[in-house]
Amino acid sequence: MFAWPVLRPWILWISAALFLMGLFTLFAVVLGWPPVPEDCVDTYCYCEYFDVRDVTAGARGIRQPVNTWSNLYVFVTVPIIAFTLSRDRHRGDAANSMQSSGFWADLYVLVALFLGLGSMWLHASAAKHVAWMDGMSMYAFAGFLLFYTLDRIFVAHGASRGVRGTILLLGYPLVVMFFTQIGARGVNSEILVGLLVGLYGLLELLPRNLYFWQSNWRYWPMNFLGFRDGWAMTFWGIAGASFLFAMTARALSAKPGDIWCSPHSAFQPHGLLWHSFSGVMALMLYFYWRRENRNQPPAPAPAAPAAERWT
């Protein structure tokens, strides 16, 4: 019989998926969307054509089918994460937080799921009062990168679980809510996501380079990034390349006139490339974190107590 930590990833992702998809279906099929157009309606709204009259009328239905349904990639990527996490927990592997029964891995299951399902609200509705879910899903994911990396650094420096838990419980929700608020007020989401991802990159790579700068020059690609595990470097590299490609696809298909924008085409790069490769990035980051500490040298055994005692 499986223990609760082994089943928890599946229970979390299935419950969260049913809740989000159920709420989404309630608006799209039963109630209709709020009749308040998103700011992008008069300009572009990520290329794919829709009838603006449906938005202003608060009609039921899906405004941008390709950009909406492409987010269902999470029903492939997140089960892979849940399966791998459950298997690791069943085997008792706990080299790092992404293999243990702690909350970080469970939280990532939810964050990776929300990254896709939160985006659906913008593209299905083009309505201002629910489109903020798209921004919140991106800030929740980028904020996770930042705070999980901070936690890894604190663990390496011996910070207590209480200190780390306080930083997570207070800092992470505040950052996500703050960025969601200022994004909803019109600040470009690409700038906000870029800021969080840039801070993550500094925390990820700078300590590695400072620590490993004396490494053997013959292995400079791995040593430059500070990876002692080839698979870890590969997963992180694929994640980074996927993010850059996804951002490029987003930039080249944002509005009519862009080289990858054809409003009436079934090929919508914003959904098929930006969304899908964001999912690849999330999956590869999980496998990267899972590889951490695989090739670490064992900790030295504690010294035996001295035979002589002072009285």
Rank of each mutant, 00 (worst) to 15 (best):
V6D: 05
R8D: 02
L12G: 04
I14R: 02
L26H: 07
V29Q: 08
Y49W: 13
F50Y: 15
T56N: 00
R60N: 02
V66G: 03
N67W: 10
S70W: 04
I81G: 06
R87Q: 03
R89A: 03
S100I: 08
F103S: 09
L110V: 12
V111C: 11
F114Y: 15
G118F: 09
A124Y: 05
W132I: 14
F141V: 01
L145C: 08
F147V: 08
D151A: 11
R152T: 00
R161N: 06
G162N: 14
G162Y: 03
R164M: 03
L169P: 01
L170R: 06
Q181K: 03
G186W: 14
G186Q: 09
L195V: 15
L196S: 00
L206V: 15
L210V: 14
Y211N: 07
R218H: 10
Y219K: 15
M222N: 06
R228A: 01
A232N: 15
T234R: 01
I238Q: 08
G240Q: 09
A241E: 02
F243K: 09
L252W: 13
W274V: 02
H275A: 06
M281Q: 12
L285V: 06
R291C: 11
E292T: 01
N293Y: 11
R294G: 05
A301I: 11
R309T: 07
